[in-house]
Design a protein around this nucleic acid. Structure first.
Lengths: 396, 396
DNA sequence: CAACTTTCTCCACTGAGAGGACAAAGCGCG
DNA sequence: CGCGCTTTGTCCTCTCAGTGGAGAAAGTTG
């Protein structure tokens, strides 16, 4: 099929496209119930959308006691690509226009190898998804990278953990290679968009999405939209001071949250504990695997290992201290915890909750849910699809 | 003059009113340059505004080489009341429709005496301004209170320093008494609005406004609008932990920023230092005045007193630590420092700056001005006038 | 088949808004 | 002073978005 190039011509059409994306097929009458337009005007706009090919009318719905309605839906051949580039792995997924995942691949990777090598891998993953018959081509792609991004241009700026990417024109390069529109954003923002679209944050206008992976970041949603900050570095909470004169951090300061708790810090602390003979459980795992990761700590904790549990609790407490400050400041309606360490589960969550509920003001925490993300590793790719669809489903 | 009751009928009229408010008198042609409407449509909307009486056409401007233009301006009789209720004093001011201060009164007061007593005082101050001929009545009022507010209803919720105000229908009560529309907000938000309208933040979309008075709070502006949070407590940074296991705070925790630095904490620390004989300068002032305040510390510091300087520097450092975290998180384009302690001036500012620039990531601080507020004690009342005018100059 | 629903289409009417022509009012120059 | 030029403001016509009602189309129920 030929790729779609049309864009909505006005705000009404954009509205309709988003309704169809988020709510699936509708009849004209159902659309009319939601958009506050006269039936005649609505018919006109729907017809125009049908002409563009973005939308199709197929089949008749079952009758509800009267004339049967036509199903209006987004073109079933539309395909979006969601790409979530982490520090140590990539996720690539194809979705249809309703942002349902049709295929999803995850592969280990190292961002520090630079954009060229990484994009080669991403493109081959995308090609594999295409070859499997899930897509004949892509109508748009949303990419998340683990660092600050100048959003309008889609260019990473001064990303600490991926220095080789600084200033690389990600959006332009990928758009060229994929032959479709591309949007680029920080990976935590994509996670927030994902959880907003299909996860725990569907009904909340203001929320925080804390992603604890190799590093720590935080997606900020204000009034339903992502807040990216003046230079695109908003949400960079990994380098907030959590412990005065604490551990040295790669950024040059001491006591940064990330230096005390994150995937990397946890691996380091677990290895240290194993070597010092504090935890036989972790020591055996270290011997077997050669190295320790968050998953090992999770397993040891599940087996009742006291040291592992302590590591998680202490990390959760540190994180909770920082989040408590953010909650006082920002007063969100929801805090979502996600990322690679989600495997640490409720031990971690309990420590975070305890700290936040203890430290923040009752007015801010009284009705504040703190929950794990619902989408796990798919949050990022769904967020990517959401990002580009928001762009394409807006008037040009 | 009869009070204005009209409201703009549509977004165009609202836009025009705000242009006239922010830019003073315009000719029709000048308005046309700014609103992207055809001259004919513009003429229609201006005529309708003239009919409502919100706007008047008076006098002819000097020619610029062609036909002389009519001056269109907001009705010169419009009057807004700005009220800024602090912990220990009230500011009340009258402005014209362009939000220029025509008269301003400041009086000591104690919020803890409760809403009834305070409003009696506020109303008598308003009456005094009226009696002085500055206003025949008020077309609207914006009130700031030192605590969280459920904004849509204009009701304080669980305000720590003014418990007697909890749930008191401030908006409704004052609207009744004054006989005009009233909006209520947190005092730091009003300060932010003031600095945005007429102060240092005129051109910035995302900024923080840290107000250090009896307590510490922070106005948050995102995308040009105030962020109030889910329960109206956003910006409540006084109880963010600044010192682990630090001084006990009235909120029940330890080490809150406010317990270590604020007008109240500074007065306490200065008194302590004076009594311990650490500072002859402060000791003499304590003897003369009976008590010490931020102004005494400022004076002692200006006289070169080492203890006073240390107090300011340490407070600035604590505050800077917290602000550094907020800057990393929020990535603002500007940080404004204001409130009662502005008198501590550049010693304080320098300490804050040092700490923020040291602790936050370069990407977030690289181009980040940290400055003192420009409006001083008038920021709040201007913000109040701005708040109500934004409301009244929006379509009903 | 009649009565009733629901869905969708058609058509006439309204009002927002654009844009051009033109009138009014000023300046400067020969 | 008259003439050309500029700027400001008004008037008139044309277009098009959008409304709302009438009614056709296509069902269900009894």
């Amino acid at each position: 099929m030929r790729r779609m190039t049309a864009r909505p011509a006005n705000a009404h059409q954009a509205r309709l496209l988003k309704l169809l994306r988020d709510g699936g097929p509708h009849s004209r009458a159902q659309l009319g119930d939601q958009v506050d337009l006269s039936r005649s005007k609505l018919a006109v706009e729907v017809d125009r959308l049908l002409e563009t090919g973005l939308v199709v009318a197929d089949g008749l719905a079952a009758s509800r006691g009267g004339r049967r309605s036509h199903n209006i839906r987004l073109h079933p051949g539309l395909r979006f690509l969601g790409v979530d580039i982490g520090a140590t792995s990539v996720d690539v997924a194809v979705t249809n226009a309703e942002l349902e995942i049709l295929g999803h691949i995850n592969q280990p990777m190292d961002v520090r190898e630079g954009p060229v090598a990484v994009f080669e891998q991403v493109l081959s993953m995308a090609a594999k998804l295409r070859a499997s018959g899930l897509a004949e081509g892509f109508d748009g792609a949303g990419i998340g990278v683990p660092g600050p991004v100048r959003f309008p241009e889609g260019v990473p700026v001064a990303p600490p953990i991926m220095p080789g990417w600084d200033g690389f024109p990600v959006r332009e390069a990928l758009s060229q290679e994929l032959g479709c529109p591309v949007m680029v954003d920080n990976d935590v923002n994509l996670m927030a968009l994902g959880e907003q679209h299909a996860g725990v944050a569907r009904t909340v206008a203001d929320f925080l999405c804390v992603k604890i992976g190799t590093g720590i970041g935080c997606g900020i949603v204000v009034g339903g939209g992502v807040h990216r900050g003046t230079t695109g570095s908003a949400g960079d909470i990994g380098h907030i001071q959590a412990v005065p004169d604490g551990r040295p951090c790669a950024c040059g300061n001491r006591g940064c949250l990330e230096a005390h708790f994150s995937g990397a810090a946890l691996a380091r602390d677990a290895t240290e504990a194993a070597q010092q003979g504090l935890s036989p459980e972790l020591a055996t795992r270290l011997e077997t695997n050669g190295a320790l990761g968050a998953a090992d700590v999770a397993a040891a904790a599940a087996a009742g290992d006291a040291t592992a549990l302590d590591l998680i609790r202490e990390g959760g407490t540190r994180t909770g201290q920082v989040i408590a400050g953010l909650v006082s400041f920002f007063n969100p309606g929801l805090v979502v915890i996600g990322g690679g360490v989600t495997g640490l589960g409720h031990t971690l969550l309990a420590a975070i909750r305890t700290q936040v509920y203890r430290q923040s003001l009752p007015l801010a925490t009284g009705n504040l849910p703190i929950v794990l993300g619902e989408l796990g590793p798919t949050a990022g790719v769904i967020g990517g699809a959401r990002l580009i669809s928001d762009h394409l489903f807006s008037p040009a």
